[in-house]
Design a protein around this nucleic acid. Structure first.
Length: 568
RNA sequence: UGGGGUAUAGUGUAAUGGUAGCACAAAUGAUUCUGGUUCAUUUUGUCCGGGUUCAAAUCCUGGUACCCCAGCCA
């Protein structure tokens, strides 16, 4: 037995390494006790669960530390790739997850004037220059990982000349790519980011917020650190790949002599059986491997929402996986665990038959109908009960009958008695087959009227309880069964020469159009979530209508019978 | 190969010189009108080699492995 005194360790009080740094900084009054983080998405695609990790981290700081704040800042420095519609979807997803940026909504483009001022300052200091090198030439000058680069022949233009050229760039007097503004740092630096990186490039493209006002746009490297500085962010939390950029951000901030946030890098989220880069997700969409960004198989927030995931379950997942600096891949089973946990608590129970098999209860009166009481949620008494109609002909699940059952099969079989949930005990007396195909078309059963409600007065036990739907009262529906999008744990590492799409699971969506659901589901609305008893959790799809009900399977129930079968 | 990072059960994450813990996964049993839930129990770990110390996942030292960087993407 464990020692009760030791059980006081509250896991929720444990801080991850980022929170530890912040906690220490707050205690030491490092930023006058201020804490300000930010979530900085680029509006060039939909948010995925990897972003959710970052959102939970950044906005979660607000909940963890009194007085802390978190900005939402769109990093919109590349008009060629960004769109307004992405801004809207990103906002929607953050709200849906349950976070609120209040009035702290910003855009990097808000700072274009300031950023340009900064650039001018560096030019005047002799720390930046206008370069005429083409992309190819610049690459050649950059050197390699092991050999130093060569300085640009334009590196020594005078400040006056550079100022004039920069002004002309800004006015749109040059073509795209004709010139760049570069920082003058060190072409021999072992850190490639320090080899005179580009600060501004010429892009004659309409910007979703600044219109046609600018012909030059700052690079991410020149915009990001300064934007954090302008907003007086205390802790700039970003992913591991920016570790190499930190010295560059430091250099800009130091040369500019402005406020200096602290950058902390953490490992981005990976999950097995899926991909997590915007580029690859975009490819799945454009190549039509999925129906869109919100396809229920996508790891996007909108996809997970449509699949039936709850914000709570995603947040719990993000909390549990922790935050570290090691590249790691989480098991999708953990994510599934958290939806099951949440939905078990909250989802209404309901009976639906996915693959109907007709049963005629031969000794049940022809025209009789009964309304039976069914529990809405055994985990929550306050959810009450509902009436479910019963009659002579019902559907059960095809999988719940076997003519020649193996040892561990507890369900219906010839001569065997089982319980119909909330209804009666029934015993199978006849198996009716199609003469030609030999396929089972219906079952004949008898029922025991004394077992009404599901209990036998004589204490007789049955080994199985089956869900069912009365044929006469059934509402027909379409059900979409989803499984992993990829049949390989690590689709990124496809076999030689093949890309990740070669690992696509062609059976990741199975549509059933002839499902019988209980009548209470007739009025279900999009995003309503249910537990189909004994089957799994299901969510009404956004395309569902009264005439054509559509349910998406979020996740199956844990299924030890399936496990037993798999072992064979 | 230069530079920057990182190594703790199958997976992910704690332990900040003092009993290697938690969650998921896996396994066993109990309960159950969901083969669900719940409960109990079990298996499995400090990358490797040296050193310091009464005591090392933690400190020192030497290896090894993996990740990131050669966009006018972010």
């Amino acid at each position: 037995m464990s020692n009760p005194e030791k059980e006081n360790t509250k896991t929720d009080d444990k801080l991850n390494f980022v929170q530890n740094i912040i906690s220490n900084d707050q205690q030491s009054n490092k930023y006058d006790g201020r804490i300000l983080t930010r979530f900085p998405p680029e509006p060039n695609g939909f948010l995925h669960i990897g972003h959710a990790k970052s959102i939970c981290l950044n906005f979660g700081i607000v909940e963890k530390f009194p007085g802390a704040l978190c900005n939402l800042r769109f990093d919109d420095t590349n008009p060629a790739k960004e769109e307004e519609k992405y801004v809207e979807s990103i906002k929607e997803d953050i709200k849906w997850l349950g976070f609120d940026w209040k009035d702290r909504l910003f855009f990097s483009s808000d700072y274009f004037d300031k950023l340009y001022e900064y650039a001018v300052k560096l030019v005047k200091k002799g720390k930046a220059f206008v370069c005429d090198l083409s992309t190819e030439q610049m690459r050649a000058h950059r050197g390699t990982i092991t050999t130093p680069g060569k300085e640009s022949p334009f590196r020594n233009r005078t400040a006056e000349e550079n100022l004039g050229l920069l002004e002309q760039m800004k006015k749109g007097e040059f073509k795209d790519g004709e010139k760049t503004l570069r920082a003058k740092i060190d072409m021999a630096s072992p850190n490639l980011n320090m080899r005179d990186p580009v600060m501004y490039r010429i892009i004659h493209t309409h910007h979703q917020r600044t219109g046609d006002r600018w012909n030059i746009y700052p690079t991410y490297d020149f915009a990001h650190g300064q934007s954090d500085s302008i907003e007086r962010i205390t802790h700039s939390i970003c992913t591991l790949e920016f570790e190499n950029h930190r010295p560059l951000y430091d250099w800009f901030l130091d040369e500019l002599d402005v406020y200096h946030p602290q950058q902390i890098e953490f490992a981005r989220l990976n999950i097995n059986y899926t991909v997590m880069s915007k580029r690859k997700l975009m490819q799945l969409v454009t190549e039509m491997h999925v129906s869109g960004w919100d396809d229920p198989r996508m790891p996007t927030i909108s996809g997970l929402r449509r699949r039936g995931y709850t914000p709570e379950s995603i947040r719990n997942f993000c909390e549990r996986i922790g935050v570290g600096k090691v590249n790691s891949t989480n098991d999708v089973a953990l994510l599934e665990h958290f939806v099951r946990e949440d939905l078990n608590r909250t989802a209404m129970r309901v009976m639906s038959v996915l693959n109907p098999l007709k049963i005629v209860i031969v000794n049940y009166p022809e025209d009789q109908e009964e309304e039976l009481d069914a529990v809405n949620n055994p985990e929550d008494e306050t959810k009450g009960t509902r009436k479910v109609p019963f009659s002579k002909i019902i559907y059960i699940e095809k999988d719940d009958f076997m003519e020649d059952p193996p040892k561990k099969f507890f369900r219906l079989a010839p001569g065997r008695e089982v319980r119909l949930r909330y209804a009666y005990y029934i015993k199978c007396t006849d198996v009716i087959k199609d003469e030609n195909s030999g396929e089972i078309t219906e079952l004949h059963c008898t029922y025991d009227p004394a077992t009404k409600g599901g209990d036998s007065p004589d204490g007789r036990k049955v080994k199985a309880t089956l869900h069912w739907v009365s044929v006469k009262h059934a509402v027909m529906a379409e059900v979409r069964l989803y499984t992993h999008l990829f049949n390989r744990e690590d689709p990124e590492n496809a076999e030689d020469g093949k890309n990740f799409t070669s690992c696509l699971n062609l059976d990741s969506l199975k549509t059933l159009r002839n499902c019988a659901v209980e009548p209470s589901l007739a009025t279900a609305q999009p995003e309503d979530r249910f537990q189909f008893e004994r089957l799994g959790y299901f969510c009404v799809d956004k395309d569902s209508t009264k005439e054509n009900l559509i349910f998406n399977r979020t996740v199956t129930l844990k299924d030890t019978w399936a496990k037993v079968q798999k072992k064979k």
